[in-house]
């Protein structure tokens, strides 16, 4: 007993020394972050850049500046991983390489992630409070993306294409299409057009309009206020059409673009947070995604509303 007791400080001392050595050794494991030259930086007004620089650039650009405490492993490893992932998704130093529409889409997504409190990452903000976006900062970004503009004019070419699509569809009505499986194995739910509309959205950011259909399980869940989480068996179909302004000031549902599904099965789709995602595009209903990995996009985009069981839609009441 006495021997053991007297050796305890020595053991502790050794552990501390080993810990220190491991810590020191860890400092030499340094995945490079690096700041390659900004080859195609975002072109935006100075006040917009100021907000982005202050809140986003540290991870989403080639101008990463680590604080001293970020330089120390293991914090450094987290920073290196976050910066790598951030740049791969959105890099303000290279964004101007992309087509204008895609740049704009990324900026809208960024503002939404910020508005929902998903970005900057809360863990990042805890240590870098200066990066927090104020309401005024958000307003700067929103005004930049959505300046007041005149109502869009009718587009004759788009109208002709939509008319043609409609005529084909009406003539072929009732013909069932052979639809391929989504790359993650989900079969096209043929019956969605007979479901009820749980909401509509006017997406002025990308000039589409949507009807979100819900199956019977979804409609019942809404009536019973059991929507967080939604019960297994819930399916949503979100159908999107091009916005088609007419001469009277109305905007109608133009050409059909795509239909997207969320299918709730907590066990089967556990790896995508309980929802199976699938999307079919165009009149030939071509499945979206090169392989099953496409669902990472879906999960990423729905993550900011994870506290709402990953669902963005505010369903209408009184559907029964």
């Amino acid at each position: 007993m006495t021997i053991e007791r007297s050796s305890l400080p020595r053991v502790l001392f050794s552990l501390v020394i080993i810990g220190l050595l491991v810590f020191l050794a860890a400092q030499f494991v340094r995945p490079a972050i690096g700041n390659p030259p900004a080859t195609a930086e975002l072109a935006a007004p100075p006040e917009v850049k100021r907000v982005l620089r202050n809140s986003c650039y540290n991870c989403h650009s080639n101008e990463t500046q680590l604080a001293w405490f970020d330089q120390v492993a293991p914090a450094y490893w987290i920073a290196a991983r976050d910066v790598k992932m951030a740049r791969s998704h959105l890099n303000f130093s290279e964004i101007a390489k992309l087509p204008a529409a895609q740049q704009k889409g990324l900026l809208w997504e960024a503002v939404n992630q910020a508005q929902l409190g998903a970005m900057p990452l809360p863990s990042y903000l805890a240590l870098h409070p200066h990066a927090r976006l104020s309401d005024a900062d958000l307003a700067v970004l929103k005004n930049y993306l959505n300046p007041p503009s005149p109502a869009p004019a009718p587009d004759d070419k788009a109208k002709t294409a939509a008319d043609e699509q409609y005529n084909h569809w009406i003539q072929a009505s009732g013909t069932k299409l052979e639809v391929q499986l989504s790359p993650n194995g989900i079969a096209y739910p043929q019956d969605w057009k007979n479901w009820k509309a749980i909401s509509t959205t006017d997406r002025f950011d990308n000039h589409t309009m949507r009807i979100i259909f819900g199956n019977d399980v979804a409609v019942r869940a809404i009536a019973e206020h059991r929507i967080n989480p939604w019960p297994d068996g819930t399916i949503f179909a979100k159908s999107a059409w091009q916005q088609q302004p007419d001469a009277d000031g109305n905007t109608r549902a133009g050409a059909f673009l795509q239909v997207e599904f969320m299918i709730k099965d907590s066990a089967k789709y556990a790896s995508t947070r309980g929802w199976g995602y699938a999307r079919w595009r165009g009149m030939d209903l071509k499945p979206y995604g090169k392989d099953a990995g496409f669902t990472a996009e879906c999960v990423g985009c729905h993550n900011p509303v994870r506290h709402n069981d990953y669902v963005y839609t505010f369903p209408l009441e009184g559907l029964q």
Partner: peptide, 14 residues
């Protein structure tokens, strides 16, 4: 709302 939707439209001015 208990029926099926046929289409949707918006009016920006209104």
């Amino acid at each position: 709302l208990a029926w099926k939707p046929i289409t949707t439209l918006t009016n920006r001015a209104a």
